[in-house]
Simulated scan of single mutants.
Amino acid sequence: MQNINETVRSFVHHEQSGAVWRLSDLFLNYIPFGHEQIIFCCIGTDRSTGDSLGPLTGSFLESYHSFPFRVIGTLENPLHAVNLQDTVEELQQSSTTPFVVAIDACLGSEKNIGQIIVHEGPLLPGKAVKKDLPAIGDISIKGIVNVGGFMEMVVLQNTRLKTTYSMSDKIARALLLAWQRYSLKGKNNSNNYAHYDDSREQIGYSNFS
Score class of each variant (00 low, 15 high):
42 C>R: 03
158 N>F: 09
168 S>N: 02
174 A>P: 04
165 Y>E: 05
43 I>V: 15
34 G>C: 02
82 V>H: 06
59 S>F: 08
164 T>D: 07
84 L>A: 10
168 S>I: 01
117 I>E: 00
42 C>L: 08
143 G>R: 06
177 L>C: 01
65 H>L: 12
116 I>F: 04
83 N>V: 14
139 I>G: 02
12 V>Q: 01
169 D>G: 00
94 S>K: 07
29 N>S: 04
198 D>H: 12
69 F>P: 02
37 Q>P: 05
145 V>P: 04
204 G>I: 13
103 I>H: 03
112 N>V: 03
192 N>E: 15
17 S>G: 10
200 R>Y: 15
159 T>S: 14
192 N>T: 15
22 R>D: 01
172 A>F: 06
16 Q>K: 12
158 N>L: 10
106 C>P: 05
77 N>D: 15
108 G>S: 00
83 N>K: 14
55 P>F: 12
187 K>M: 11
178 A>K: 01
183 S>R: 10
30 Y>V: 02
28 L>I: 06
16 Q>W: 09
21 W>K: 07
144 I>Y: 03
62 E>H: 14
123 L>G: 11
105 A>K: 03
94 S>A: 14
209 S>F: 12
92 Q>W: 12
204 G>A: 13
60 F>V: 02
4 I>C: 04
142 K>W: 07
48 S>W: 08
124 L>Q: 14
145 V>A: 07
93 Q>H: 13
195 H>G: 12
186 G>M: 08
124 L>D: 02
145 V>N: 09
89 E>F: 11
67 F>M: 04
181 R>L: 07
190 S>W: 15
78 P>V: 12
110 E>F: 09
172 A>N: 03
155 V>P: 06
62 E>Y: 08
119 H>D: 06
133 L>S: 05
145 V>K: 04
197 D>H: 14
206 S>L: 12
113 I>T: 06
131 K>E: 07
172 A>T: 03
58 G>R: 07
152 E>Y: 09
130 K>H: 08
